[in-house]
Amino acid sequence: MITIQMDEVTKTFGRTRALDGVSLELGVGVTGLLGPNGAGKTTLLRMLATVLGPDSGSLRLLGADPADAGGRLQIRRRLGYFPQEPGFLRGFTVFEFVDYVAILKEMTNARERHDEVRRVVREVGLQDVSGKKIRALSGGMRRRVALAQSLLGNPDLLVLDEPTVGLDPEQRLRFRDVVSQVGEGRTVVLSTHQTEDVAALCHRVVVIDHGRTFFDGTTTALASLATGRVWLADLRSSAAQVAWRNGDGRYRNIGDAPPGAETVAPTIEDAYLLLLGDRALGAAA
């Protein structure tokens, strides 16, 4: 089932071409979006969230055209969006803020709306602080408030732009649990710099850079790009494109392995670094 269809989509801001002919077809499940800073991920996600329109190319979401007012409303009624930098109305408590967003999502029945707000607040583990002012919460908790509002109404399309930034390991596990459940019957698009999150959650991964797709396939297929190109050695190898010293004192080298090298199973991160080379390293720095 195809829920997102992008065909040769472009978007330009001034002289910067943020998206340069991106074509994608995504369906139910969790899709990870990887790429360095400035690759075009946020622009792509803002389009999926109907906040931006393409300059050229075609886009259909959940079977509707976001360029058409009626189609956009249909999509928005089935959409959840977690922006890259979520802000919160001053003076609002967690409950009040999520309730406010619920009204913007046309939830007019007070009892049902309050039940739904309590549900999503519980889902993200904020039920004990739902009466607290958002400004009194930590950065990680605030991001969970943003996640809670995006889950309102069980959206068929959930767009998450770097939702795990600032979350501690326990919160990330909870996040994975929530998102994987949503992804069982619906479409989730997740942008992140955390390759572990992609490995843990996504059945499919798209790597973009310079506004173009560099890879589109399963996480296993991405990792396999680095098969035979990751090896451990006592020294940094001159053949390695990328190398770093592990905790055990040995070097993990990525590149064209020399003969006789002790190769190891690659991770998504290894493949990602190989794929994007210096650009990815720049982002990591």
Binding site: V51, L73, L79, P86
Partner: peptide, 22 residues
């Protein structure tokens, strides 16, 4: 102006109630 001043506009931008209705 509260949504704009607090940066919350980004979270409301994709809601069913569009800016004009808001």
């Amino acid at each position: 102006t509260s949504a704009r001043r607090s940066g919350a506009e980004s979270q409301f931008a994709s809601a069913a109630l569009d800016p004009q209705l808001r």
